[in-house]
Write a protein that binds this DNA or RNA. Structure first.
Length: 287
DNA sequence: AATCGAGCCTGCAGGC
DNA sequence: TGCCTGCAGGCTCGAT
């Protein structure tokens, strides 16, 4: 699901509603949700109990809650990945639990509990040590374009050495993080580049413009609370964003290109759909 | 070393 | 009304 803007919406909700609170009890159900935590779900739950959530952080699509004991500087984090369908919901403990609730955290203040709901279970929880404020298991993820230390020139250089289609490179979270299928299609449309163009064959300035479009479209989406076509993509209160109304390419097969009026086409590419304008985004020859 | 594709899940829409 | 296929905001892993 959720790409950077949607994950950021969730992060802000967590910062507002759970930061500073202390976990009274944690319940982590089933193996899959904790599959990245080798000692298992029960061990993960046990390690969360009594800890204070010091803050909510994000890099790309990875979210983490820093864990502290009293006033000590946090040295560990609960990492949350939403996968394709994960939700973090703050809810009144008396309200009925949604289907596919895989984890629950209750707090010592007795207020709203935190629920992890995930229909497809591609998401999950794990624990990791914090080093310089970043969990060790997130360290291999590239900085996203909103990170103060994001190095645009370095990312351009990295993209340029990749001998693979530019869309695949945009989706590679080790090159630049946060971009998923929606915002890749939108950025490519804005830049007028077909996703199967070889990354290494693009000029540096063209790559720079494409990355800037990716950042801009994600910023636009964030202003509107993210993109949601259904109730799978919601903030911690269950509310949807409405950037879906502003999409130019993603999911727009058959509609007129907003720039030139040509009917948008859909192609299968890397096992997923890509929608683009046949006129503004010319498919490379020989691919 | 990189790059590619299949596989992991559940639910929904559309075609027959 | 089924039943079947295809598809969905992501990532990981094994084979080349």
């Amino acid at each position: 699901m959720p790409e950077l803007p949607e994950v950021e919406v969730v992060r802000r909700g967590l910062a507002d509603h759970v930061a500073g609170r202390t976990i009274a009890a944690a319940e982590v159900r089933g193996h899959r949700v904790a599959r990245r935590h080798v000692p298992g779900a029960q061990d993960l739950a046990d390690r969360l109990r009594g800890r204070t959530l010091a803050g909510a952080h994000r890099r790309g699509k990875y979210l983490w809650l820093a864990l502290a004991d009293g006033g000590v500087v946090p040295d560990e984090a609960l990492i949350v990945h939403l996968g394709m369908s994960g939700q973090m919901l703050v809810a009144d403990p008396r309200t009925p639990e949604p289907r596919h609730t895989h984890a629950r955290l209750t707090f010592t203040d007795g207020g709203g509990e935190l629920r992890f709901v995930d229909q497809r279970t591609f998401g999950g929880f794990s624990l990791a040590e914090l080093v310089d404020g970043v969990p060790t298991s997130v360290a291999h993820i590239a900085l996203d374009p909103f990170d103060p230390d994001y190095d645009r020139a370095a990312v351009i250089a990295d993209v340029k050495r990749r001998r693979s289609g530019i869309k695949r490179v945009l989706l590679n979270q080790a090159v630049v993080s946060g971009i998923g299928n929606i915002y890749a299609d939108e950025a490519l449309w804005r830049a007028g580049i077909h996703g199967e163009r070889l990354a290494s064959a693009l000029t540096g300035p063209a790559i720079g413009r494409l990355l800037d479009h990716a950042k801009d479209v994600m910023a636009d989406a964030l202003e509107q609370g993210g993109t949601s076509f259904d109730e799978l993509y919601v903030n911690v209160n269950g509310a949807s964003g409405y950037f879906d109304r502003s999409l130019s390419a993603y999911g727009q097969e058959g509609r007129a290109c907003p720039r030139c009026g040509t009917a948008m086409r859909r192609e299968q590419f890397m096992n997923r759909s890509s929608t683009s304008c046949p006129r503004c985004q010319v498919r490379p020859r020989g691919v």
